[in-house]
Design a protein around this nucleic acid. Structure first.
Lengths: 330, 330
DNA sequence: CTGAAAGCGCTAACAC
DNA sequence: GTGTTAGCGCTTTCAG
């Protein structure tokens, strides 16, 4: 199948290429008859407009760059689904870039998306990405940040309010007189980890208490499980909060292994429900985070920015909903 | 930051745009001094070559389309990592497309990648994608199929030999006189599910036996867990094989719930190890599938095809390695 | 309503 | 070595 261009179509339909272009873009009023003729020619020849040439002519690519840290890609599968589905609806293409710490330099990636002349960039910010964001801001390219609360002239963000979730959680426990609430650090998700901690701090402050239940995992621990296994030999808490599903699983196993009965002696809450938190026994009580929506809404926001539609909320907050299972009481 | 083109750079450096182009592409011999001058101009102006224009001029985009069924995207996170990492090395960009059954039409997606003039397409084939593949073949566009064994002039493939894995597994059990080996169907991964079944059939044939242990899950079952829960009320097997990690977890829970002790009464094997198969207790014996490699090798293969380098193996087989944990004996 | 022609930014012969 | 120029395929005024 040789490459066939707008010229071939024009010749076949006996019109000028301008007319073909008009038909393709469904623009100005083309006489019904000519349109028919052109469309037939297009079908006959199997013509597919060259998006590259269009991009060049329009200085617009209907393409967005998606930047995701490779560490969170499995976690963000559903995010990508939502994002792509919406992109499809609005006829945008998605350029995928993963950043692997130590391997891929974020600067290079930014360079790449700039070169590719994407119309916008959507970036999943599990770490502190201020630098990169500033870099992109210089290019004045519309940007949506997922997972972080931030905004500016050309930046919107969509995030899950983990802080509030933990805040509410802690408040409800504190009201029952339960104060020994431990929160496990999550190196992989700095930003979220900090938010979660903050939520607890804020809640405790309401009760005139200082929060001191944050458990730091020193960097040299090979795995959360290993760490917790020894941790639970000497510690126990009324409530234990983990961020990632795998951390919650690790906690469940380690605690059980150490003879701590869950939920009787210790309650366990995971901040990110997944099919795995409900695939273990006991099923882990967890917050259901609207991942698909996170991606979908981010992309929708992007389309709005690109069409210069008004964006009512530049920092869109999504709520995580608590789903009580069997690692918490009542 | 206004858009700055090769012309601006040329003017700034006091050379013609051809020279700038040469410098960018590190091509022909440019006098060291002029090169310096041009590079300074580039830096000063913050010039970034327009990949779109380059693509047009070269009729080559150094871009590959990646097509992934949205159902397997979480599963394929590591695949994507491998793929992107290698893409980065060879300076290719990745166009991501997810296909959601019932929502996105595969034909539309093929249309999109054609329009985008990608240099090649990498497609993750969990279902039977013969039609789509033929469609792409018409365009004579280099293609790498992941997860399926197939090849032709313009098609290579990288796959994991699940058939052989199961074959070996069955043989080893049969040699011990264990014949009651059940394999659970996996609707989500048709192709693999069939391969796994085939492996058993082949193994049993070696012992002059017909294999009859394939468990079909009728489509109307809401979840594997629900299905197995009632299944294990009346059934029990010496060995139970599941494909996906979540199916294995479901089997573990359902069986345990039904009072079947694992591995004593029933051994359990999962065909796809994940952090979750080893996050439950007992840890599930499973095959470690080189997902990262699957993506990395596929991309590497693609770069070879695109450079017309010789491809020694058009159907590259990857091996899954059995990792014995606590749901199997010895 | 349709055609002619000037770009969009870059590459690659072909001259000089 | 470096500059000139003709495209790559499409959109978009501007005429007609």
């Amino acid at each position: 199948m040789k490459k066939i261009t707008i010229y071939e179509v024009a010749k076949e339909a006996n019109v000028s290429l301008a007319t073909v272009s008009r038909v393709i873009n469904g623009s100005s009023v083309v006489k019904e008859e000519t349109r028919k003729r052109v469309e037939e020619a297009i079908n006959k020849l199997g013509y597919r407009p060259n998006a590259i040439a269009q991009g060049l002519a329009l200085s617009r690519t209907t393409t967005v760059g998606l930047i995701i840290p490779s560490t969170s890609i499995s976690f963000s599968g559903r995010v990508i689904n939502g994002l792509c589905d919406v992109a499809k609806i609005y006829d945008y293409s998605v350029y995928l870039h993963t950043i692997t710490e130590g391997v891929t330099d974020i600067k290079e990636i930014i360079d790449d998306v700039i070169k590719a002349r994407v119309d916008g960039v959507i970036i999943y910010a599990d770490k502190d990405l201020d630098d990169s964001i500033k870099l992109l801001e210089d290019y004045n390219i519309p940007m949506v940040v997922m997972g972080n609360q931030i905004s500016s002239k050309s930046i919107c963000s969509v995030y899950v309010d983990y802080r509030k979730a933990v805040y509410d959680l802690c408040i409800s426990y504190l009201q029952k007189g339960i104060k020994d609430i431990a929160i496990l650090q999550d190196h992989r998700n700095d930003v979220i980890s900090k938010l979660i901690k903050q939520g607890a701090i804020d809640a405790f402050k309401q009760f005139d208490l200082d929060y001191e239940g944050f458990i730091e995992i020193s960097k040299d621990n090979r795995s959360t499980y290993k760490f917790l296994k020894s941790y639970f030999k000497t510690h126990k808490h009324e409530v234990f909060v983990a961020n990632r599903d795998s951390q919650a699983l690790a906690a469940l196993n380690a605690a059980t292994g150490a003879g701590i009965s869950i939920p009787d002696e210790m309650q366990l809450v995971c901040m990110n429900e997944s099919k795995y938190t409900s695939s273990v026994r006991p099923e882990i009580s967890a917050y259901v985070v609207p991942l698909y929506d996170l991606g979908a809404i981010s992309m929708r926001l992007m389309t709005k920015m690109l069409k210069d539609e008004e964006v009512e909320e530049k920092e869109k907050c999504l709520n995580a909903v608590f789903s009580s299972k069997n690692t918490t009481k009542e």
